[in-house]
Design a protein around this nucleic acid. Structure first.
Lengths: 142, 142
DNA sequence: CTACTACCTTCGAGCAACACGAAGTCAAGG
DNA sequence: CCTTGACTTCGTGTTGCTCGAAGGTAGTAG
């Protein structure tokens, strides 16, 4: 059994966010101790982890709540839940592609700055001269 | 030369966001036509693309503005800019890792739902039973 | 010339998802 | 007993859009 602080640390969320999600009903199995403190068992952790993944893949808190309610309704909602997950999966895959490009972009910029500071190339590093490919990147305008 | 609508499409931003960023000074090279319409040349596109990448890697609009101002100040701010980019690069790399895990998670869930609908396994798919590894995933609690 | 369409503009309000701080409760330690 | 610290609720603040109103301009069709 975990406290708010512990789950926040384990799942890499702030305590504020953990409370916010539980208040919004995203963790239906949440329990309380005799002092009304939130208490997370493994199942509650799983709801919360699922909520985090769904949120980060682009769902609103409200949409996640709807999804959770569908889960609680039983097996009859499985096709509906499947459709939702399918859409979120595709978003997650698209995000992964974007994250790759972003990481590559940032790595290139840092390398470029390092070169500048080593006097290898002149300063064409301000974003106005940033472009989408390295050919242009290495052909400074200014 | 591109209009707001065109850059929005090219960079995959909403028109609102493009106007918001330009209003916040993230595109110092922005020009206007005789009717006061925003007009983007290649340089302005690059500022905007840079702003988008920095934003998505976790910087606030205000922080990006600060960065842009540093760029405009000249070469003396290069070490400072390098530090900023270094931090953002690390965040981008961390995000990439998270995106990978999230995508894997979502793919597993979708596959799992497909199995359920094909009557391969019983329903243990509600998030309360979701767990971090597939061993547990395939050992339903309910 | 007018009317319609399709852009663009500014501005101000609204909104989601937290973030934060106040004010209070409770249990343990010195 | 009193402080420390972690928890609670509640209400306000912030960021980054998001939307819509209200209006200007340019092109085309009748």
């Amino acid at each position: 059994m975990y406290t708010v602080k512990e789950v926040a640390k384990l799942l890499d969320l702030t305590e504020h966010t953990v409370r916010y999600y539980t208040d919004k009903g995203l963790v239906p199995s949440l329990q309380r101790d005799k002092n009304n403190n939130r208490l997370f068992d493994q199942q509650s952790m799983n709801w919360l982890r699922g909520a985090k993944h769904l949120k980060q893949s682009g769902m609103s808190v409200e949409a996640i709540k709807t999804y959770v309610d569908l889960c609680l309704e039983g097996e009859s909602t499985i096709p509906q839940r499947y459709e939702i997950l399918l859409e979120q999966r595709d978003k997650a895959l698209a995000q992964l592609e974007e994250a790759k490009q972003r990481a590559e972009f940032m790595v290139n910029k840092v390398d470029h700055y390092r070169d500048i500071m080593n006097k290898v190339v002149p300063d064409n590093m301000n974003p106005g001269n940033w472009s989408k490919n390295e050919i242009q990147d290495k052909a400074p305008l200014s």
